Simulated assay, not measured.
Amino acid sequence: MSPTDFQRLIADVTAQLPGRPLDAELAAWLNSTYPAHSPTFRDLAEACRAGVAEGWLCNREAGGIRYGRIFKALPDTHGFSVDVVHMKDLAGPHHVHPHGEIDLIMPLTEGATFDGHPAGWCVYGPGSAHRPTVANGEALVLYLLPQGAIEFTAA
């Protein structure tokens, strides 16, 4: 697996997203189209695990969180930036999603959750905010941010 191969995998998903509102309907569509244990989900999870092991994903660390932006918002990723984080039983820094956020949750520990969500997809709408939280073990979370927009806050 290489970053280029990874980008192709992501682009297969992001190609389906332009023009769709980031909302609960999109989360339901993602979870039915690319459910946990589907070939696409498995391929993305395996690529993320390989990228972490090879050092080109999650190559930074702060506050017990390994993280990294692998791609800025690009035409090849249909205007989405791509970040991956590795967290274990902790809450990350509070932030706002000006244009929304799409998350792929890949538990490394059976039963681990991200913001209360199990393996699968979670979508936050434009203007939403949270402290991303992994509970019940370890997880990798892939973030798709429209136009790469994210605003960290003091909250």
Rank of each mutant, 00 (worst) to 15 (best):
T133R: 00
G51L: 09
R60N: 09
S32Y: 01
P126E: 09
T113G: 06
L9K: 11
P21L: 14
P126W: 02
S32L: 04
A73S: 02
G64N: 04
Q7W: 08
D115A: 11
H117Y: 10
E25V: 12
N31P: 03
V52Q: 12
M1V: 15
L26H: 01
Y67P: 08
G125P: 10
G127L: 05
R42I: 15
D115N: 15
Y124H: 14
P18E: 03
V123T: 08
T33D: 06
A11I: 06
L144H: 02
D83V: 13
G55Y: 03
H86A: 12
L140E: 01
E61H: 10
K72W: 07
Y143M: 13
P132W: 12
T40Y: 05
R20C: 05
S81N: 00
P39H: 06
L140F: 10
M1F: 12
T109E: 00
I65T: 14
D5V: 11
A129D: 09
A47D: 03
A11F: 06
N31L: 00
T109S: 08
V84F: 00
G68C: 12
L17Y: 07
I70A: 14
L74W: 05
A154L: 15
P75R: 12
T4P: 07
L57E: 01
T14P: 05
E101V: 09
I105D: 06
A149P: 04
E46L: 15
Y124W: 13
Y67R: 07
G116Q: 02
I65V: 14
T133L: 04
L90C: 04
R60C: 11
P132E: 04
F6S: 02
E101N: 06
I10D: 02
P75Q: 15
L108C: 10
C48K: 05
Q16I: 14
T77K: 03
K88V: 13
L144W: 08
I70C: 08
L26Q: 01
T153R: 09
G116Y: 07
C48M: 14
M106N: 07
W121C: 00
F80R: 11
P35A: 03
A155I: 03
H117K: 11
H37P: 14
G137N: 12
R49H: 09
D23A: 05
E61G: 10
R42G: 11
T14D: 03
V52M: 07
D89L: 12
T113Y: 08
P93G: 15
G19N: 05
N31H: 00
G63W: 05
T109H: 02
G116H: 06
G68L: 09
A149I: 00
A91V: 01
H97C: 00
Q16K: 13
H117V: 11
P132N: 11
A27G: 13
I105A: 01
A28C: 10
V52K: 15
G19M: 06
D103A: 11
T40G: 08
I150V: 14
E61L: 07
P146G: 06
D5C: 04
M1G: 15
R49D: 15
R131W: 04
A47L: 08
E54P: 12
E110C: 02
T113Q: 12
S38Q: 08
P93V: 11
V13A: 01
A155K: 13
T33A: 05
P132D: 07
S81C: 00
E25G: 09
G111P: 00
P93S: 15
P39Y: 07
L9Q: 15
E46M: 13
P3F: 08
W29F: 06
